[in-house]
Computed example of a mutant assay.
Amino acid sequence: MMPDDLSRAQWRKSSFSGGGNDCVEVAFVDGGAAVRDSKDPEGGAFRLPASGWRALLAAVRAGSESA
């Protein structure tokens, strides 16, 4: 189980975000990742186990290949 406290998490934006505030941020936490909206960092985050993070990345990559 991942901890609920993300106050010390190191959030990162994609280098492809262009410096805007219209993307998601990810923090790698014990056992997986947390994802939040960069426009609303206090609005909460959802957490994924490591297998869920890998599946999300695979789905995103597959979608970008079909574009």
Rank of each mutant, 00 (worst) to 15 (best):
M2Y: 12
M2A: 10
P3T: 11
P3A: 08
D4I: 03
D4C: 02
D4E: 10
D5H: 11
D5V: 13
L6I: 03
L6W: 01
S7I: 05
R8C: 07
A9W: 04
Q10P: 13
Q10M: 14
R12W: 14
R12Y: 13
S14P: 13
S14W: 08
S15T: 14
F16V: 09
F16L: 10
S17W: 09
G18K: 04
G18D: 07
G20R: 07
N21I: 04
N21G: 06
N21R: 06
D22V: 14
D22I: 02
D22Y: 02
D22M: 09
C23A: 10
C23N: 06
E25M: 10
E25S: 11
E25F: 12
E25T: 13
E25Y: 06
E25C: 05
V26F: 01
V29R: 07
V29M: 06
V29Y: 04
D30R: 04
G31V: 00
G31S: 02
G31N: 11
G32A: 00
G32Q: 03
A33R: 00
A33Q: 01
A34H: 01
V35P: 02
V35N: 06
V35A: 01
V35W: 08
R36T: 00
R36A: 01
S38R: 03
S38M: 02
K39I: 02
K39W: 03
D40G: 12
P41H: 08
P41W: 05
E42K: 06
G43D: 12
G43K: 06
G43A: 13
G43Y: 10
G44S: 04
A45W: 02
A45V: 01
F46S: 04
F46P: 05
F46Y: 10
R47D: 14
L48G: 12
L48V: 05
L48C: 09
P49K: 12
S51M: 12
G52Q: 14
W53M: 13
W53H: 14
R54C: 13
A58W: 09
V60G: 09
V60Q: 08
R61F: 03
R61L: 12
G63T: 06
S64Q: 14
E65N: 03
S66G: 07
S66Q: 08
S66I: 11
A67S: 14
